[in-house]
């Protein structure tokens, strides 16, 4: 693997290698000095065509802890037409000698276009593309689950994880279904039928329309952000009805196993898919997900950017 474009790029051993490396990185982050010289002299570009302060900051913190030079390039709202700007921007960054491009884009597949097109020779890392994938989010989720439920080692076999909400439009769900099942977990997707993509039966996951019947069996429940505007496209009747059937609240919290954890990739719509009480409860690991995000992204940057590619052009094998 040379780029990280999709969770399906990862083999089982590569995924574990990233999680294990992230665990080492987490230790560094816990120490008194949080900076490593590993990527000194390397240039990493945060190329964001879509606003996402939290993801950008997380990658920026990861790169800086590894001493890379970070350039933030926000292409949103640029006057050039969408299509031209990706190619032109890639060529500009190539000329600037970017070792890695972390790209966030509202078009599904834009990172792969960047990696395949020949416009740049940089390592490309997908920081979320349209409704396609968000592989580092899935890695940090897997890392968080492993830390809490598998004492931080090995894979996720034996665990059952529910992903609840707008699966149809969720890149986080797509990456997580692939990665969590690769690592041996059982994934259950819970959503109204309108928010499940056609052909979801072919995914390595079970499907349920009923949250209450699923909650007693899960080790982790991952709530996805649901945008209010979706009801204007007839995905559900009202926000109130959505919360009633698919929101995580105090009553549903009581259905969970004592050991089960609550996750959310953020940003949350408190009161819609999750109540404040649940988000802030002792079982919530939502804040910790953010910290783990930095460790996981440090691991990805180290494994993909620090070394020279091997004879097959692979960085992580």
């Amino acid at each position: 693997m040379r780029h990280l474009l999709s969770a399906s790029d990862l083999t089982y051993s590569e995924a574990l290698k990233i999680l294990d490396t992230a665990a080492q990185m987490a230790r560094v982050s816990e120490g008194p000095v949080k900076k490593l010289p590993t990527l000194r002299g390397r240039t990493i570009v945060n190329l964001f065509f879509e606003d996402s302060t939290r993801t950008r900051i997380s990658f920026e913190a990861a790169a800086k802890r590894l001493s890379a030079d970070v350039i933030n390039f926000s292409a949103k709202g640029s006057s050039v037409s969408k299509g031209e700007s990706l190619k032109d921007t890639a060529q500009t960054l190539q000329a600037m000698g970017a070792d890695a491009i972390i790209i966030r884009h509202d078009s599904s597949g834009a990172p792969q276009r960047l990696a395949d097109s020949g416009w740049t020779s940089s390592v490309v890392i997908n920081a979320g593309d349209g409704t396609h994938e968000h592989p580092t989010q899935a890695l940090l989720d897997a890392f968080t689950i492993r830390k809490h439920l598998k004492v931080g080692v090995g894979d996720l076999s034996g665990l059952t994880i529910a992903i609840v909400g707008d699966i149809l439009h969720s890149r986080v769900a797509r990456s997580n279904v692939t990665l969590l099942s690769l690592l041996g977990a059982q994934v259950i997707l819970v959503a109204p039928p309108t928010l499940l993509p056609l052909g979801v039966e072919s995914w390595p996951a079970q499907i349920s329309f009923e949250l209450d019947s699923v909650l007693p069996y899960v080790d982790a429940v991952m709530m996805l952000r649901v945008q209010q505007e979706r009801m204007n496209d007839f995905f559900f009747p009202t926000a109130r009805e959505y919360s009633h059937y698919f929101g995580l609240n105090a009553d549903r919290l009581a259905l969970l196993k004592p050991s089960a954890i609550i996750m959310h990739p953020g940003p949350m719509n408190r009161g819609l898919e999750i109540t404040a009480a649940c988000a802030d409860s002792a079982r919530s690991v939502i804040v910790e997900q953010v910290a783990n995000g930095v460790s996981v992204r440090m691991a990805v940057l180290y494994l993909l950017v620090a070394g020279a590619p091997d004879e097959n052009g692979e960085s992580l094998a």
Binding site: L36, A306, A308, E314
Partner: peptide
């Protein structure tokens, strides 16, 4: 003490796995 992350010759070789410190 794993010193991999502190090496100054990282970019000369394929990346190696970290050993726990």
């Amino acid at each position: 003490l794993d010193i991999t992350l502190h090496r100054d010759d990282l970019r000369l070789h394929p990346i190696r796995a970290l050993v726990p410190t």
